[in-house]
Nucleic acid binder design. Structure first.
Length: 448
RNA sequence: CGGGGCGUAGCGCAGCCUGGUAGCGCAUCUGGUUUGGGACCAGAGGGUCGCAAGUUCGAAUCUUGCCGCCCCGACCA
């Protein structure tokens, strides 16, 4: 993409409303624009990152055996009356009416709808288990939206729903999502820590929040350092095999958010040097809730003996748009974002220091074409801006690699390559620079 | 929802207390000089002062109501 054709409204000054780094940088780097309290438009640069996060989430869901679909954002009140949540949900639910004065709502989640869809198509225990998901915009009329996309009212969420014949089978579904989440967050460059979450009135131990450690996190968290060092399950893990050992590994050490924290237990069970007290961002939440919806909504299947059995359900959410904020919180410095390659809006920023100069233009065009041919995504700064401004904005938007072409270097046949993550700058022969950078990018994408 | 604050040019702000020509920096446009870390000179354009009502000869400024946004707390991906 040529910057001259792009829409990239950068802000030189720090927006007064933005309190945390990710919000500030998303506004400054022209990735989002606020359209209302907790409501954001996704500008081209931010949209690309959002789509990449979404795609990684999708790939890991598919790998775990979940099946993608898409449910609408608008739902009817009728459905929610069946589960009893229409009245219970309160003011967080945005309620609207259509022209016939029918009560509708903008979905804050989809348990009711997926249950309705499930019961319409499944009759027998032989058709179980089922694992369905979608990635769709949600609206929750939060009392206090804040921190940009970290707590928006409208947000993009991946929500999966599991349907099983009994609790043992449901646990396997739960474990699949548990492993899928560990892999998803790792691929996004994040260290996530599963923490036992409050299961509410249902009880049991089948609810975990996935927390990313970050100074600006909304909740205080406590965990055992050994958890942080555990290895992410490999991509060839057998999702239909016994996942329990992996889950046990990740749940055997102390980890709790402040509402579940037991200070005495923490000190008793965790050596002092392994105690981590930090702040975290909740990026995922998995939950088993049994027949909470299937019984009132009559989502039943015929069992082996012909009797009706309410299905055992679970739901599994990932805050896709929130993840973007979490990634920036983890990867930035004073100058801007430092995108990990897999989610970077473009892999390479090609900086033409003297647009209009024949030699510079020609060298840039050649590199641009060579990189694109290899599948490397390039944002080519072909504008007439001054060098200082070009450097500053490349650092701000934080593409992993910058290739700098200027008259000074060209005289010696050299290009400069800067790695945004570590700030290391190297020179390379102009003829080799595209191959060298392409290799680095493609290697970083291998992880998947 | 309770507490605090803000709304003036695209962005960041001053002016308001003490009513009287709407201002500054950045950005934008034109011309010129520049060009390896957010340039310089000269000129120009751009404003329903959040909305409405009231007080007044006169309101960005005072009063009332409404709307929007931000921050702190209880809830959430």
């Amino acid at each position: 993409m040529r910057l001259s054709r792009y829409y990239l409204p950068l802000l030189k000054e720090t927006p007064a409303d933005a309190q945390i780094a990710s919000h500030r940088l998303m506004l400054r780097a022209g990735m989002i624009r606020q359209e209302g309290a907790g409501i954001y438009a996704w500008l081209p640069l931010g949209f690309r990152v959002l789509k990449k996060i979404e795609q990684i989430v999708r790939e890991e869901q598919n790998r775990a055996g979940a099946v993608e679909m898409l449910m609408p954002t608008i739902q009817s009140a009728e459905l929610w009356r069946e589960s009893g949540r229409y009245d219970a949900y309160g003011k967080e639910m945005l309620r609207i009416r259509d022209r016939a004065d029918r009560e509708m709502l903008f979905g804050p989640t989809n348990e009711e709808m997926i249950t309705e869809i499930f019961r319409a198509g499944i009759r027998s225990y032989k058709d179980l288990p089922k694992l369905l998901y979608h990635i769709q915009w949600k609206f929750r009329d939060e009392i206090r939206p804040r921190f940009g996309v970290m707590r928006g009212r409208e947000f993009l969420m991946k929500d999966t729903y599991s349907f099983d014949i009994d609790e043992a089978s449901a646990r396997q579904s739960y474990n699949k999502m548990f492993v899928a989440y560990l892999r998803t967050f790792a691929r996004l460059g994040l260290k996530s820590i599963p923490m036992r979450a409050d299961t509410g009135p249902i009880g049991g131990d089948l609810s975990h929040e996935f927390i990313v450690l970050a100074e600006t996190g909304e909740s205080a968290v406590f965990c055992d350092r050994r958890l942080v060092d555990l290895e992410t399950p490999a991509k060839d893990i057998d999702f239909d095999g016994d996942l329990q050992p992996v889950i046990d590994q990740f749940t055997s050490h102390y980890a709790a958010t402040d509402e579940m924290h037991d200070a005495a237990g923490f000190e008793e069970n965790v050596d002092e040097q392994n105690r981590v007290s930090a702040r975290g961002i909740e990026v995922g939440h998995i939950f088993f809730f049994g027949d909470k919806y299937s019984t009132p909504m009559k989502a039943v299947v015929a069992g082996p003996d012909g009797g009706e059995i309410p299905v055992q359900m679970g739901s599994y959410g990932v805050g896709v748009s929130r993840l973007m904020g979490a990634i920036i919180e983890a990867y930035h410095d004073d100058d801007g974002c430092k995108w990990p390659v897999p989610v970077a809006p473009y892999h390479v920023g090609l900086v033409n220091l003297r647009a209009g100069d024949e030699a510079c233009d020609a060298a840039c065009e050649k590199i641009y074409a060579a990189l694109e041919a290899k599948g490397v995504e390039v944002l080519y700064d072909d504008t007439g801006a001054r060098p200082g401004e070009k450097f500053a904005r490349m650092d701000l938007i934080g593409l992993p690699y910058q290739i700098v072409i200027g008259p000074r270097g060209l005289e010696k046949g050299e290009a400069e390559v800067k790695s945004r993550v570590d700030g290391v700058r190297e020179t390379a022969p102009v003829g080799e620079v595209s191959a060298r950078v392409a290799n680095a990018v493609l290697e970083a994408l291998q992880y998947a």
